[in-house]
């Protein structure tokens, strides 16, 4: 494991992620009554889901295994066709039409959970270039863009390394660089840290942190409640529908809902709920160690 040698790239105004649209009125991702059923399945994976994400917004999506998180990621990326009755728009492309989905694949990036299964090429830089090659960019333009991405995700020194020789964190950063090499307006990350060790997780989170600066709409799917803290908004899924949307604190404050959804709280929140059960309540719910210390200090 190699810790990133440089800090995260500065969130800069001239970030190339998507045109700097002057009218950020309509949300970039907007779905209503979204339905989807896998071929041969007996129940809907998504059963009338409503969600919208604006440019520059960072929305976390949580829910138990099988609640529809990954399916949502696939649909928003234009990778599956939503069922007929849905309204589904991604970066102003209609996801119900074939052409709309193809266009959405350009504007909406999707990063998947297993880094091993998304790297195609034989070395890092070829992999980062893959999307641009598909879009038939000129070789010089690909070179420039790839170098920029390698730099941004601290991969320059690894550019000729074969994927199977990379650590988990390095693989996932390569995959992220490959997804963002294509200029995107929205990005869906489907549990990008689930299969990584803490060092790899830190690497990827560090890379993710700089994302929304460029006006990118980010949908961050996760099981790790620590990673939810800091999102603009959190959306909780259950059986393919949204059962909560709002602030992070609001979700964790509703202990019954958290339990029902099979979510875990950050350790501090867990302790706070346990304390509430024995008669010592905190409002708002402390979610980090520091908040917990303040709460304990303040109330004792």
């Amino acid at each position: 494991m190699t810790p990133p040698s440089a800090g995260p790239s500065e969130p800069s105004a001239e970030s190339v992620d998507g045109p700097t649209a002057p009218e950020p009125v309509a949300p970039l991702l907007d779905v209503r009554g979204l339905r989807y059923r896998y071929p041969g399945a007996s129940t809907d994976a998504l059963a009338g889901l409503d969600l919208s994400v604006a440019a520059g917004e960072f929305v976390a999506v949580v829910g138990a295994n099988g609640s529809g998180k990954s399916t949502l990621a696939r649909l928003l990326g234009g990778l599956e066709r939503p069922a007929g009755a849905s309204t589904a728009v991604a970066c102003s492309h209609d996801l119900l039409s074939e052409d709309g989905r193809m266009a959405a694949r350009r504007d909406v990036g999707v990063l998947f959970q297993n880094p091993e299964n998304q790297l195609v090429a034989e070395c890092v830089e070829d992999d980062v270039a893959f999307g641009l090659e598909n879009l038939a960019w000129a070789p010089e333009a690909i070179r420039a863009r790839v170098d920029e991405m390698l730099e941004r995700f601290w991969l320059t020194e690894l550019k000729t390394r074969e994927p199977h020789l990379l650590s988990g964190g390095q693989k996932q950063r390569t995959a992220l660089a490959g997804v963002l090499a294509v200029p995107r307006r929205a990005l869906v990350l489907d549990e990008p840290t689930a299969m990584l060790d803490p060092a790899g997780r830190d690497e990827v989170l560090e890379a993710v942190r700089g994302l929304r600066a460029g006006g990118l709409a980010v949908l961050y799917v996760t099981q790790e409640m620590d990673e939810v803290v800091g999102a603009d908004r959190v959306v909780a899924l259950e059986a393919g529908t949204v059962v909560y949307t709002g602030s992070v604190g609001g979700l964790f404050g509703d202990g019954a809902l958290v339990r029902r959804l099979g979510l875990g709280l950050p350790a501090a929140g867990e302790l706070a709920l346990e304390l509430a059960a024995v008669g010592r309540e905190f409002a708002p719910l402390p979610l980090t160690l520091d908040e917990m210390l303040v709460a304990l200090g303040g109330s004792s």
Binding site: E133, W137, P139, V182
Partner: peptide
């Protein structure tokens, strides 16, 4: 999964592709 990740990066069979190298 790989097919999905390739599609997500705009791969379509029959496409005219350019190359980095």
């Amino acid at each position: 999964e790989l097919a999905l990740a390739m599609e997500a990066r705009c791969y379509r069979p029959g496409l005219v592709r350019t190359r980095l190298h």
